[in-house]
Computed example of a mutant assay.
Amino acid sequence: MDIPQPPTIVVATGNPGKLIEMQVYLDALGWQLQLKPDHLEVEETGTTFLENARLKAATVAKALNQWAIADDSGLAVTALGGAPGIYSARYADSDAARIDRLLKELEGQSDRSAQFICALALANPAGEVVLETKGICHGEILLTPRGSGGFGYDPIFYLPSLGKSFAEMQPSQKEALSHRGIAFSQLMPHLKELSPG
């Protein structure tokens, strides 16, 4: 399949932090990333991370007639039936409040297992999703937050194999082990085929 080379890709988010994180993974490909315009809102009506990633990538790509990449990610806690899941960012109005709510809901639960999930989708300028993948990182929820790095639920997401929370890891270590890192590592061989030059 002859796919045009995308020198610029729109990241289907208004979050500059997410663009910076994606740029780390995509730097080697020589692409320029840019945020979607603020006025272009995409309602996340999907019932899974992958559905929402597809929706965001396709809508932004078609609206701007440019290549677009989207990620939808969150935390799924076993004892809470997979919650907060696709509502991870909307679980409360701040990171601290989201963590507080989650820990309260887990009080008295012996099963602390959880997974971080990241779905990625890449759409061409016609709005067709041409690549997609999902990365999963398994861990546990701590009783109290630990560490000062990262963002979101990182201070309470713990990897027993390392004895550290995401917030206690060096950025390079988290990049390699995280759900987003896993998703990008699966996507990269295919992305290289689209890379300019």
Rank of each mutant, 00 (worst) to 15 (best):
W31G: 03
L64C: 14
V60R: 01
D72G: 07
P37F: 12
L75H: 07
L64M: 13
G46E: 08
V60K: 01
E41N: 12
D72C: 00
L26G: 01
D71Q: 05
A63S: 15
N52F: 10
V10M: 09
V24P: 00
A53E: 02
T13W: 07
E44H: 03
A12C: 00
P37A: 14
I69R: 01
K62R: 15
W67V: 12
A28G: 15
Q32E: 11
A68S: 15
V24N: 02
V60N: 04
A53M: 05
N15P: 10
Q66W: 05
G46F: 12
K56G: 04
P37G: 02
D38I: 03
L33E: 04
G46K: 14
Q23S: 14
T48F: 13
D38F: 08
K56F: 13
L40C: 06
Q66A: 13
R54H: 15
K56I: 05
T47Q: 15
N15V: 14
K36E: 01
T78I: 03
L29S: 04
W31F: 04
W31R: 01
P16D: 14
Q32Y: 04
A53R: 00
W67N: 09
V60Q: 04
V24W: 11
A57R: 02
L33F: 09
P37S: 11
K62N: 06
D72E: 14
L35Y: 07
A61H: 05
A76R: 10
K18T: 06
A61F: 07
F49R: 02
T47H: 07
A28H: 00
V60H: 01
T13V: 05
Q34E: 13
D38H: 13
I9Q: 00
E51H: 12
A57N: 09
L26C: 04
G46W: 08
E51A: 13
L64I: 12
N15R: 08
A61P: 04
